[in-house]
Design a protein around this nucleic acid. Structure first.
Lengths: 109, 109
DNA sequence: TTGTCTATGTAGCCTGTCTATGTAAGGAGG
DNA sequence: CCTCCTTACATAGACAGGCTACATAGACAA
């Protein structure tokens, strides 16, 4: 099965949800997590990931601080803000709403 | 409830499916049908619709011929080709696959 | 004649993902 | 020590596709 592209607009959602599980994570880790949880269907490219994180920093949905990984590499750790959590909720319900609408169309005989 | 934007890539699918119901339809009619079947969630803008139809003509997914509506207006009537039907099937299964993957991520606690 | 609705179409913008490339540091192996 | 792979971050530029805004034209009503 080929990996699929991530539909524009949904990457933010995937990142926010991944961070919403609680622990701080760095970018690379977030990407691998999404790939794993999606059962390898979604492949988060680095050229998509880092710009997305920067946008979300600017919008105040996440905060970041530099640290080090268990393997002693420098990494930037992100965590969700209150605004990010709010945005996540809104985004999820919007996603469901749109998918349901599209599904209605492509299922109607 | 506000109307939602159509996620990039899915408009073709919506149009193809609408035409797959059998009858020839003209563009304006297709747009209104999608809006109605989606229960007014999806709003197909004209600046999205007509370019999409042109792309699909070039790709050979639909054929078109000029005609007249019941109200005696000129209109361009579209119908699905075999290639279009094939594309529709592929697109639908890909859509399901991606949505399922995203759903896995945004539902995982 | 003015306005509204149908119906098609184009130009240009904007967002967001992609490919491709570059940096740097850690650790393994020869 | 040198080389290579992996991790980790980052940017530039290409590109797709939906959006707003605008333009056209005919039918029909007030």
């Amino acid at each position: 099965m080929p990996r699929e592209e991530i539909p524009p607009g949904t990457l933010d959602l995937l990142i926010l949800k991944t961070l919403a599980r609680g622990e701080e994570m760095h970018g690379y880790e977030i990407a691998r997590s999404i790939q794993r949880v999606s059962e390898d269907v979604l492949q988060v490219e680095e050229g998509s990931l880092y710009p997305a994180l920067q946008r979300m920093l600017i919008k105040g949905w996440v905060k970041a601080e530099w640290g080090a990984t268990a393997e002693n590499r420098r990494a930037r750790y992100y965590r969700l803000t209150a605004a990010g959590r709010k945005r996540l909720e809104a985004g999820v319900s919007q996603f469901r709403r749109v998918v349901q609408a599209i599904t209605r169309v492509i299922q109607t005989a």
